[in-house]
Design a protein around this nucleic acid. Sequence first.
DNA 1: TTATATCATAGTATTTTACTCGGTTTTTGT
DNA 2: ACAAAAACCGAGTAAAATACTATGATATAA
Lengths: 152, 152
Amino acid sequence: MWVKLSTRGEYGLRAMFDLAQRYGEGPIPLKSIAERQDISEHYLEQLIAILRKAGLVKSVRGAQGGYTLSQEPHEITVGDIIRVLEGPIAPVECLNDDGSENCKHEDTCVTKDIWEKVRDSISDVLDSFTLGDMLERSNKMKQKNKNYMYYI
Amino acid sequence: MWVKLSTRGEYGLRAMFDLAQRYGEGPIPLKSIAERQDISEHYLEQLIAILRKAGLVKSVRGAQGGYTLSQEPHEITVGDIIRVLEGPIAPVECLNDDGSENCKHEDTCVTKDIWEKVRDSISDVLDSFTLGDMLERSNKMKQKNKNYMYYI
DNA sequence: TTATATCATAGTATTTTACTCGGTTTTTGT
DNA sequence: ACAAAAACCGAGTAAAATACTATGATATAA
């Protein structure tokens, strides 16, 4: 399947949503996120390292340490998270920053603008949703379903 | 990369464009397509088998046989081709026909509608281009660039 | 000083991709 | 009838990507 979120994107988004639900509560240890989301802690470490280097989360080392979102939930889009974890959205090689060098016949390519439109439409959708939107959605779910389940 | 056309989609689209350029000339042998497009003949056989089973091309067996588009170029969209070769566009498992069975908490899922919008926007873009559009585009290129190169 | 954390890197099993290989069957032209 | 040209078919395989595991070092609060 050519459009398929890997576990990097899925787990990373779930971890970020977990942090969004606890925004303002101080640093959240990774262990607790991994347990709640049922993800291998070691693997999640690697993913959150990517998010940290991209500036989406801040870390506090040592005991009582953990992670927090570096901006408010409504300031972080799903696109920010997915692009960082899954890499740039490029259906074909030549849409990458470096990739255009490899392609000598850009100017006469019949399909390039198709892939550009695909890329842009995906980006637009993902950037139209923030973690804040997801929280709101989740809260509405909670009100409706008293059994208190919200999933991602 | 989570949005990445595989060679199946790329080669298949190139083969279909090759057939579109020769539409009306009778059956085109696969060997000639493979040579022009510089694709392994055996591999392309497997891809065109998928296109044939999906009804996008017709085959004529025996000597002087080959393949033809089963509809006019402007009736076949890029989406038709890509969906057949790369499988259904489903960023997450639960958007597949069978996949929803696996997911118990569809009703309370915070992200499902994001992935549905992603899927639909990709589909819309791909369905807005036909092989006929690509031929027109290619012909304009030919007029501008006298050196007669058109690529895909 | 100890427990709790983050941080870092190397290794590995599984899955997917991108083919290759070795044929059989069908049809046309001589 | 026969040879050549072509579609059709299924199994096997090398390389790459994915999804982890393993083993530690470093930092900080209590």
